[in-house]
């Protein structure tokens, strides 16, 4: 898959001698919805952190849209077109829904201190454009205007997750990384999430990579699935191929403390 949007090759990461990722090869094609699954502690979130620049792998290469990502600091990775959400919703506390989403526009806008102090016309136009774009993102994820000025962390949990996705969309990404977006959602909200993920790809043309424990959701929404176990990629394929892969079944069921969530 040489035309991949995101390409990881031979990525290895260790903390103080403990191997977290070993020689991981992984691709996300342009316009794809791809899932990364695996037992707890397999290294899924670490892989996200490598992609987004928070962890620096000891070896390997990560390229995205023609850029070499490994040299970049996290804010440059975001500027290059990768946005993410967090496993435990991490909205800015004490700030409103709108202010939260506006953070995403930072790397797409320019105005500095002088423009703000003088209230230059360009600065005011930019502020209005930021608000407009963020309203669009909030509307897209289904958060209404009555919630814009509420403190984000006082919203119902399902809505906080949506606000977090809107904030990621405001960075105008080409690839969206969702870290367990369905965690804590009820059955109805999960269906809404599946529809939202599809719309993100179909209407906005954003590729999606998700980490998820809810295998039902994973099977429904993703075209390709990769399985990570003990820091190594053990399988890659379509939902059908993954379901019948003996290595995957062993990874999930063959361990004593198995969180045997893979309900085939």
């Amino acid at each position: 898959m040489s035309g991949a949007l995101l390409n990881l090759s031979g990525v290895s990461l260790a903390f103080a001698g403990n191997t977290v990722l070993q020689n991981v090869d992984f691709q996300v094609a342009e316009g794809a919805v791809v899932s990364l699954i695996g037992p707890n502690g397999a290294g899924k979130t670490s892989l996200f952190n490598c992609i987004t620049g928070f962890y620096k792998p000891q070896s390997g290469a990560i390229t995205f849209d023609g850029h070499e990502l490994l040299k970049l600091r996290p804010h440059r990775v975001t500027a290059s077109g990768i946005a993410r959400t967090f496993q435990n919703v991490r909205l800015f506390r004490e700030m409103t829904v709108m202010q939260n989403v506006m953070s995403g526009m930072h790397s797409r806008t320019r105005s500095g201190a002088i423009a703000a102090i003088l209230r230059l016309p360009s600065q005011r136009a930019e502020e209005a454009a930021i608000r407009d774009y963020c309203e669009g993102c909030l509307r897209f994820v289904g958060v209404g205007p009555e919630e814009y000025d509420r403190i984000a962390t006082t919203l119902a949990y399902g809505h906080q997750r949506r606000v977090e996705i809107a904030r990621a969309l405001a960075t105008q990404p080409k690839l969206l990384l969702l870290d367990e977006p369905a965690a804590g959602l009820n059955a109805g909200e999960k269906q809404d999430l599946i529809a939202l993920i599809r719309r993100i790809r179909d209407e906005r043309g954003i590729s999606v990579l998700l980490i998820e424990h809810d295998t039902g959701l994973v099977m429904q929404v993703s075209e390709r699935i990769s399985v990570l176990d003990h820091g190594a990629m053990i399988a890659e394929g379509t939902a059908k191929q993954i379901q019948s892969n003996p290595k995957v079944i062993e990874a999930y069921l063959g361990q004593e403390d198995a969180e045997a969530e893979l309900d085939f």
Binding site: R90, F92, E94, G104, H106, A116, R119, E126
Partner: peptide, 28 residues
């Protein structure tokens, strides 16, 4: 004026959560 600006908001983001601010594209 600074408080209600792009830079002013960025200060608040960094104060509340440096890592998330950085993930949102802010050079902390």
């Amino acid at each position: 004026r600074l408080e209600n600006s792009r830079l002013g908001r960025a200060w608040l983001y960094v104060r509340h959560d440096e890592d998330v601010a950085e993930a949102m594209g802010i050079n902390r």
